[in-house]
Every structure is written in C-alpha cells, then in structure tokens.
Design a protein around this nucleic acid. Structure first.
Length: 767
RNA sequence: UGCCCGGUCGUCUAAUGGCAGGACAGCGGCCUUUGGAGCCGUCGGUGGAGGUUCGAAUCCUCCCCGGGCAACCA
C-alpha cells in the first residue's frame, strides 16, 4: 500500500493491525476476512457498516472476504434472509470471494467435538438447563462442577453419538467444554458446545441433525476452516475472545491462525437498529414494511433512494473505533447530499401548490424555456443532458410556503408589494391576492417584467406550469423518532415522530415523464427526490424525498426541520468539590502499609511506594537491586515506571542477572554514562531480550551525549529548517519547545541529553 | 458487587512521549438566477486528582463516568 493511498483513507486501528501483519509477513502477506451474518432478520445499516469494514479491509490489502452465514440456530433462520444478505452485499458494490454456510461445517465441528471428548476437554452434561444455570455461579461467586464433569470418556462419547442420532429429548443432555467453573470470565465456566434440537427443522440441513453447535463452538472453527486471518466482530464479543482462542488451541489449530478483533457497533441518532425493535415497528404497523424508507434497513434506505456510494462514503467518513458512540443524523444526511449533489439534475416541482397568475401574459400562450439542468458549479456526469425545455404559461403553481402575507424579517420570497425571480423565467411583481372565506390565500396575481430595468431581486422561487405540470404525490420523510436515543427510553415507541412521513399532493414539471423512472433529481430549493420504486406509476407519480436540502428553513416540514443541537450525554451537572490530596496508601492492608511506611522512610516516592507495597515480586526485586545500588528512590522509580511497563502486565522475577543489570543501569545513570530516557530504553531491551546493560548501551548507541559540540549541528539544522517555527518561538510561543526538542531528539538519537539540548536550543534561538 | 472493555470540541474521528488536527453541525462573511453547492473566517475538546519525564491526550496510581459478561441466542 503506498503512503498516498493510506493518506486518503481514514486510518483505523484494524488497518494498522493488519498493516503490521502484512509488513511482518505473519500470514505470508495474506489477508482474509469474512462477513458473518445470521440469516434471521433483514440487513440494516449496522450490517452495512460491517460489510463495508470487512470487504473494505480485504480490498485495501488485496485480500479476500467471504460471505458466511452463521446459521447454527435452526429455530430462527430462514432462506428469505439469506437472499437479503447477499443482495445487500452486492448492492453495496462488493463481491464475496466465496459464499459459505456454517451449517456446511457441521460434520467437521462434530469430528472436532469427538476429539475434544477423547482428550478429556469436553463432556456430556446431563443436568437440566436450570441446574446448569444455577451451578454456573454469579459474577461474584464461582460456579460448582457438574456431577457429570468426570463422567468416563466412553460414556460421553456414547451419549454424544446418541444425542446426534436423536435418541434423547431436547434439554436432556448438552456437550460442554471442560475449562474452569471458577474462572472470572463466566464464558469459560464450562461453556456449552452442543444442544439437542430434535424437532427443529434447519432451513438447509433439514432434519439431518438433532444437535446444533452454539456460537462459540462454531464461529472460530468456521474461521479456521476458511483460513480467515482477521475475524472482526462487535465489542460485546470481546469477552468471548479467550474462549475463541481456547477452542482453537483445543482442536490443535496452530499459528499463524485466525484471530478475533472487536470494534464498536454502529449506532445512528434518531433511529433504532435492533432486530427486535425493527420487527415491532413493522408488525405493529408504525411503518409500512421492512422497506419503508423511514427504516434503517438496507431495503428501506434503498427504496428511499439513497445510493450505495453515499453509504460507503459515510462509513469511510465516520471511521472505526472501540468506543461506543452514536453518529449524528446530520453526518449521514451530509453523505447522501454530497453524493447526490454531483449526479442529480435540477428540476422543478411544487409540493404544496398555490396558484400564481401572471396578469400580463395571454391566456393561451406557452413559452418554452431552455432551462439548464446543472448549476454553474457542478460538472454534469459524462453524457448527461445539460438542459430541458420548461413551459411558461399565464397560470403557474408555486410553493405555498414561498408566499407570505406578513413576511418575517429577512424574507426573500414573494410577499405583498415585492418582486421575486421565477427560476429560469422572468421577474414578477406582486399585484394582488385572492382569498377564500377563511382568509387563506387562493391565488396570487403578479405582473411579469414590471420595470424596464429590473436589476437584482432578493429571491428566486420555483414553479411549474399549471397547464403542463404532472400531478404527483410527494412523500416527505423525516426522522422516525423525536429523541436522538430511542433505546434509552423505557419504551422506544413513546418517542416515535408523528410527522416521520408527510404526504402531499402537488405537481412536477413535464420533462420528468421522458426520463427513466429511476432517475434521481434535485427538486430545486426542496431536496433530492426519486420515484418510489414500488408505488410510482406513469399515470400516478409518487416521489420519495431522499433527503431535504441543507438549510435553516425547510419549506415543507410540518415539524420543524433540521436537528436540534444535541445536549451532551456525558455532561455531568454536579461539580465535584475539590478533594483532599489522595493518600496513595489508602487501600493498602496492614502488612502492606508497614512496607509502605518503610519504603517512604527510605526516601521512596509515595506513589511508587504504594505500588511496591502491593506487589511482592516487584518488592523482592527492589530489595535485590538495592544490593548493587544504594538509592532506594531511584530504584523504585525505575522499577515502577520503566521495568513494570516493559513487563507489560507480567509479574516481575528477581533473578540474579536482572537485578545486577538493573543496578548497573542505575549506576550508569548516576555517573552520567546514560540519560534517564536512555535508561528506559535499556530496561525495555533488558526485559524483552535479556543481556547485560553495558552491551545494550554499546549495541544501541545509547551512551549519553551532552557535549555541545556534538549536539550543536543537530540543533542548528533544525532551527535552519524551521525558520517559521523559530520566529514564532522567539515571539513567545513557548509550547514550540516541544516541537524543537522532538525534532532534535529524533535526529540526535536516544542518547542525547535532553537538558543539554534544551539549553542549547534556548541559546541558539536567542532566548 | 467481581472480571473485562472504553472515556479527545455539541457529534464522529486523528495525534503511537514532541505545535491537540480534520470532518459534520453552529455562527459570520464572500459568491450565487437554488435560503443549495463552493470558498474564507470563527466558535469549540484531552473526565478528575496525584506521580514519572526536559516534555504526557499518550506511561504509572487512585477516583469518577459509560458499556459488556450470570440464553441450551448470535
């Protein structure tokens, strides 16, 4: 991957991990991902996110991405959803390298299960599901072993075989992995591998199987069968990762093998994404079906008129992290507009008609105007027509919202006494208004080209000829919920938006009758629209509003358009009072506190003393190093901050070699051979690779350099090359010291003495 | 409550011990025969307290907040 193409993409942690593997040759440069939906519901934008991620990752690294149905639960899955998933992938513009089904691996899984039983790593448990649950323990208490846990291997084997043959009723037995009923991770408390479902009919395997694998006993194994390298799933599976690896170990899959990585699932403000909630919306008739354009389903967004390009660029734009988050609707709408802006010709339509009569135009005359499709700042797509003919007649329809009898301040449209431009047509000046009994405007009369030199007008309004216009229905979609986070409600249906669909009857200019019915347009000043692919017919047009134009003023919404500035969910109102300085030893036991007091008494810093007091291994090492270097404070600092970091969570061991080396490191810092930063580097190498301090310093060139003559060339070069920063620094921008230090240190190496460099920098920068 | 994961502008996201940057939204201006688009400007952030370091969003400690885990679902 070139650095240029890297820069174009929003970088993310998964790309970095994979790039690292590619660079290191971990999988011989191979990258294999998979999109593993369970075919038990219609795909939605969350699936789209996962599709873009997995297929995108494969694409970025020249790898392959499979579509694999995770169809291990015969009770919920169906062929209908299989088709929908595949369709979604293709619509988004991806082609699966292979299409696989976990249910095709059932034989292999079973063979592996038998192997595990034979190895003593799995057993048939004959407790009831209630007993199993009760014996699993709780998050704070360990579970207890099943009475069947030590059942003879032969017996488990026989029972498993009988379970498979359908000789036992549902719930009578399960196969469990034998791990540890006391593990802090509940998933490792002898997880279930198979359950009996004798009467269930699998949509692909029929009645062939009477037992079905559970997720954990299927997913990683499926990945292994397919030689997946990077198995990406959502955050809630993070806690499953140890089990994922345990099963691979148990069946003997060696490195380099598939590994699981988790990312935060996609959430969108003002909508819901869970299968259950979407189902309720459909079943209770709050929407008109799975493909209702208000639904966050792929089918819904597709029917609404959103293009796959918009969805892909959207997911590119928002990125991938491990942080729970919810993306603003404005971001999604921006991606849709940004996509459509360059491909949608501008035409005119009136969604809430008001009659406009141009008094000085003859009744039976039609003027055909050649009107451009594209604004000056848009380059039309290759081969797209640049204009169409629009009829201008005495009677027109204009948008009701474009006329105001009592206009607010800053009004740019039509109002009594004012002039306005008809888009592509003449300037008209208000002359009178007809009203009905209720006082509602029925028609506005105007005069065209009222002055000889009309000059500029403030506003432009859109219109269609009353004689030529085609009647059409407009479906104006708004957010489905009034609250940005419906999931946080007790009942999400209480925040349904009553105005999520506003249907109006109006007119569209006649030219659209000649276009393909799936063209997307911008109806000027309104938004992007296309014909509803289901309900629109040549003689009864129905237009979906894909997305409204961005702006302060949504002409048509009954509910006020736009999205209110969300209030922070994090913002805590309570300001915590300033606390007393924390006592680092507060949580120490009595014995630990004795250690703590002793350490502090010897000059060790309190934070360091607290860590040392609670870590017996590290404290032993401390005492050991003390034998070779007599400064408790420095030893403690090195141990707590450098050694422990290098250890990366592993426990310290106080071997003779380590202790002596650490003492040596400290002596070198003491006599000036090493800088403090250099010491950290040496410690890291020491812990990772072993060796002795002196030869590491030698080999890595870490010996301290604080000689002006040696450092000056680096300092001068950096100053010369960054005159602008130097200027700013001289002007008092003190924070740039960090910048200069970084530049110099990078060139001078880890051995350079930071204090000496800084002193030199200040001199040379004339401060 | 035990374990695990996480916390950077209003929102999404960069910065991998060295100038806290971008995008969306907002606001102001320019431009415009769309109150669109575009361009320019502007507002705005490292949850808190200590510690290590020449230097901390980043490393250490504690606290606070959010999420996940006790289905024979995935």
């Amino acid at each position: 991957m070139s650095s240029e193409s890297t820069n174009k993409l929003q970088n993310n942690f998964l790309r970095e991990i994979i790039a690292g593997h590619v660079k290191a040759g971990t999988y011989g440069g191979r990258v294999a991902t998979r999109f593993p939906p369970e075919p038990n519901g219609y795909p939605h934008l969350g699936h789209a996110c996962t599709i873009c991620l997995n297929f995108g990752l494969a694409e970025d690294f020249g790898g392959a991405c499979n579509l694999r149905y995770d169809d291990t639960n015969p009770e919920t899955e169906s062929l209908e959803f299989v088709a929908a998933m595949e369709d979604a992938v293709r619509w988004l513009g991806y082609e699966p390298a292979n299409i696989y089904f976990a249910s095709d691996y059932f034989e292999q899984f079973y063979e592996w299960a038998v192997e595990l039983v034979k190895k003593g790593l799995a057993y048939v448990d004959s407790q009831s599901s209630e007993e199993i649950r009760a014996n699993r323990g709780t998050v704070t208490e360990p579970g207890v072993n099943s009475p069947y846990r030590s059942r003879p291997v032969e017996e488990s084997l026989r029972l498993l075989d009988e379970m498979r043959r359908g000789e036992h009723p549902d719930g009578s037995h399960v196969l469990r992995a034998k791990i540890d009923m006391a593990d802090d991770n509940m998933l490792l408390r002898d997880p279930l591998m198979y359950r009996i479902r004798r009467d269930a009919h699998h949509y692909r395997r029929g009645d062939e199987w009477n037992i079905y694998p559970l997720y954990d006993w299927a997913h990683g194994q499926g990945d292994a069968v397919e030689n997946i390298t990077h198995s990406v799933c959502t955050l809630e599976f993070d806690v499953h990762r140890p089990l994922y690896n345990w099963f691979l170990d148990a069946i003997g899959i060696d490195e380099p093998r598939n590994h699981q990585y988790e990312f935060a699932r996609f959430n969108l403000d003002y909508t819901v994404m869970s299968k259950r909630k979407l189902l309720r919306l459909v079943e209770e008739g709050h929407v008109r079906g799975w493909d209702d354009p208000r639904m966050p389903t792929i089918a819904g967004q597709r029917r609404r008129g959103v293009r796959p390009e918009a969805i892909r660029s959207f997911f590119d734009r928002i990125g991938i992290t491990r942080v729970d988050s919810s993306t603003g609707m404005a971001e999604y709408e921006h991606s849709i507009r940004d996509d459509l802006n360059h491909v949608a010709p501008r035409v005119m339509a009136v969604t809430r008609p008001l009659k406009l009569v141009i008094e000085n135009l003859p009744e039976d005359e039609t003027t055909w105007i050649d009107a451009h499709y594209w604004p000056h700042d848009i380059t039309p797509p290759e081969g797209a027509p640049t204009s169409r003919r629009v009829p201008l007649t005495r009677e027109l329809w204009i948008e009701r919202d474009d006329f105001a009898e009592n206009p607010p301040k800053g009004w740019k449209r039509l109002s009594p006494g004012e002039k306005v431009r008809l888009r592509h047509g003449p300037i008209v000046k208000f002359s009178s208004v007809e009203r009905d009994e209720a006082g509602e405007a029925q028609a506005v009369h105007v005069e065209a080209n009222p002055d000889e030199s009309p000059g500029k007008v403030k506003g432009v309004i859109h219109w269609v000829s009353a004689e030529h216009a085609l009647p059409a229905q407009f479906r104006l979609y708004n957010r489905l919920f009034t609250d940005p986070h419906p999931d946080e409600q007790e009942d999400f249906l209480t925040v349904l938006n009553p105005d999520s669909l506003v249907e109006t009857e109006g007119f569209v200019e006649p030219s659209v009758a000649e276009d393909p019915s799936n063209d997307r347009y911008q109806f000027e000043r309104l938004g992007y629209f296309w014909q509803d692919p289901v309900d629109s017919k040549p003689d009864s047009l129905v237009f979906n509003r894909i997305v409204a134009l961005r702006g302060k003023d949504d002409h048509v919404l009954t509910a006020k358009g736009g999205y209110t500035q969300p209030v922070s969910r994090k913002g805590s109102i309570t300001i915590e009072p300033p606390k007393e300085p924390r006592d680092p030893a507060a949580r120490l036991s009595d014995t630990q506190r004795t250690h703590f007091d002793g350490l502090v008494g010897r000059g060790v810093g309190k934070e360091e003393a607290a860590v040392l007091s609670a870590d017996d291994a590290l404290r032993a090492l401390f005492e050991f190093v003390l034998g070779g270097y007599d400064s408790p404070r420095d030893i403690a600092t090195l141990l707590v901050h450098d050694v422990r970091r290098a250890l990366g969570g592993h426990s310290a061991t106080s071997s003779m070699a380590t202790g002596n080396s650490l003492a040596e490191v400290l002596r070198m810092v003491g006599d000036g051979t090493l800088t403090r930063t250099g010491a950290g580097e040496v410690v890291r190498t020491l812990v990772e690779k072993g060796g002795d301090a002196a030869s590491i310093v030698e080999a890595r060139g870490l010996a301290a350099v604080r000689d002006d003559a040696a450092l000056a060339p680096f300092v001068d070069a950096v100053i010369t090359e960054n005159p602008e920063e130097a200027e700013r620094f001289r002007d008092g921008e003190e924070r740039l010291m960090g910048f200069f230090m970084g530049q110099v240190m990078r060139r001078a190496g880890k051995g350079a003495d930071a204090k000496a460099v800084q002193k030199l920098l200040r001199e040379r920068l004339g401060q």
